[in-house]
Amino acid sequence: MRDNETLLRIDNLSKSYDGKTLALDNISLALGEGEFVSVIGSSGAGKSTLLRCINGLIKPSSGSIVFDGVEMTKLRGKRLRTQRRRMSMVFQNYNLVLRSSVIQNVLQGRLGYKNAVAGALGIFSKEDKEKALSMLERVGMADFAYVRADQLSGGQKQRVGIARALVQEPALILADEPIASLDPKTSRTVMDLLRTATDDLGIACLVSLHQVEFAREYSDFIFGIAKGQECCKGTPCDFTNDVLAGVYEDEDLLDA
């Protein structure tokens, strides 16, 4: 599928929550290093499930997920944690620890690298702190370092979330509808940050989105899911409105 080194390869992934209906039905997908891929589909199509299967938050029913040469579906415990720190996640609801300060939240991105005790006690090295600070500066939130997370606006919280994801020094960022709760201008800021992560830092991004226009504008490749099944994929140019109608079924996308 691609020229660069394949970073993530998903083969025949299926997931059923209740044993009857399939949330994911035989999904196959490949992602190269430094590639920006969007996953689009309507609500309930399976985008969140797909992303969460990749980092093991959800156990798939069948299929294989190979990340950086390691089969993810069989991992447990320490091995799982070691693999997890190479991919970070950005959430729709930001998922910050709201009672902790911004800097504390960003530092938590380094926990995968710390041993159990030091991490638990919150003992971070000078390098950790410098990395956290530099990521905060990258997202433009350095002045808010000591502010408690629950006092930030949605866009600010998401930027902190991205800083936390970046400080992990991942090879891949999984973004689960990162801009679903944000206004258009803030959404653009967040998408810009993700794109510069790919361009400047070489981090691959797998982003699930509703907003088709953003998908077309920012991605190298788009993957469409409908009802748990792959419905179409290709470069942004391939995604004409007719193709999109298939993804969103009867919905009228031409007004989007």
């Binding site: 944690r81 070691t82 720190r85 910050l96 995968g112 936390r164």
Partner: peptide
């Protein structure tokens, strides 16, 4: 909590 699991943190952390 989910975010911290996905970072690779242990239960104690």
């Amino acid at each position: 909590v989910e975010a911290l699991y996905s970072v690779g943190a242990t239960k104690l952390q």
